[in-house]
């Protein structure tokens, strides 16, 4: 029983991090209609940078904050390339983000080499209602909860947050009332970068990152995101948690631990097939 709960708690923690990545996909897709293939890159960059800063002697928290700020800047930069040019169609933007992802490999290897990188996690564990949880898990869950709360407030209560929603709801009308849809798109990319970066600094102590870890991070995030059709952050949170727990159970109880990553892949195809069957062909 306690083994089971331990597995679930680790699943919840990684799932929460997936949900952050997923929300990055959702925020960017809602505003720009672009599926950002470079979404996993933000996590890799933040994780690697954080480790490097810690080695340089920067204290925890400060290192994480700097790494997340760098991820926000990276998100803004990717947005600038992908949608900065007026009239870039979404499919071209998607291929551009893919190009950025490939290019990032070169940059990451150049800066930090091609080996796995990690840093030490929050030490110790805590007893929550009979379940022993690593402090790092508690930290991930708490950080995710705070982030989601902040996002909800931002989108539902602030004027800029509503303008972002308006860009998704009706881009043409948004332009008519004077909202600069492109600038809103860049803001969305920056937020997406920050969310990816946060997931990166939270996950790296649990799973070392390599230059090409972005693929698996993005796949997990995407799987969680399409629970809500890439449009609803709330559903992405549920998706992330379900995915994280499912993967933890598979790796905890199956003889084929390597099937763990397969869960996300099968889930992606399964959900897509289900959604394709539900709505009329070609509809968004």
């Amino acid at each position: 029983m306690s083994f089971f709960l331990g597995v679930v708690s680790s699943g919840v923690a990684t799932g929460a991090a997936f949900a952050l990545v997923a929300t990055g996909f959702v925020v960017i897709h809602r505003v720009t209609r672009v599926v950002n293939f470079a979404q996993g890159v933000f996590s890799v960059v933040a994780g690697m940078l954080c480790a490097a800063l810690l080695t340089l002697g920067l204290p925890h928290f400060l290192a994480e904050v700097v790494a997340i700020l760098a991820a926000i800047a990276a998100g803004f930069g990717v947005g600038l390339v992908a949608i900065g040019r007026r009239g870039t169609p979404p499919l071209a933007s998607l291929i551009i983000t893919l190009g950025v992802g490939v290019l990032s490999y070169a940059v990451v290897i150049l800066l930090w080499g091609d080996g796995p990188v990690s840093f030490s996690m929050l030490q110790g564990q805590v007893d929550v209602g009979g379940v022993t949880m690593l402090w790092q898990y508690v930290l991930i869950v708490a950080a995710t909860a705070v982030t989601f709360g902040a996002l909800m407030l931002f989108f539902n209560l602030t004027y800029v947050g509503k303008a972002l929603t308006a860009c998704y709801s009706n881009p043409h009308a948004a332009r008519l009332v004077g909202i600069d849809v492109r600038r809103m798109g860049l803001l969305a990319f920056a937020i997406g970068g920050g969310l990816g970066g946060l997931a990166g600094v939270l996950l790296t102590p649990l799973q070392p990152v390599e230059f090409d870890s972005d693929v698996s991070i993005a796949i997990n995030g995407f799987a969680a995101a399409i629970f809500g059709g890439l449009l609803r952050p709330g559903t992405a949170l549920v998706g992330g948690l379900v995915l994280g727990v499912a993967e933890a159970l598979v790796s905890g109880y199956s003889r084929y631990a390597s099937l763990q990553s397969g869960v996300a892949l099968v889930l992606i195809l399964g959900i897509m097939v289900y959604q394709a069957g539900r709505r009329p062909e070609g509809a968004e």
Partner: peptide
């Protein structure tokens, strides 16, 4: 049959996932 009912961006990710699955099967 199912995947092609999805438009553009989804298909790109679906085919990427498909390749990872194929590689995983080939390895197993």
């Amino acid at each position: 049959l199912p995947v092609l009912r999805l438009r553009g961006h989804y298909l790109a990710f679906a085919t990427l996932a498909f390749q990872l699955i194929v590689l995983s099967i080939a390895g197993q």
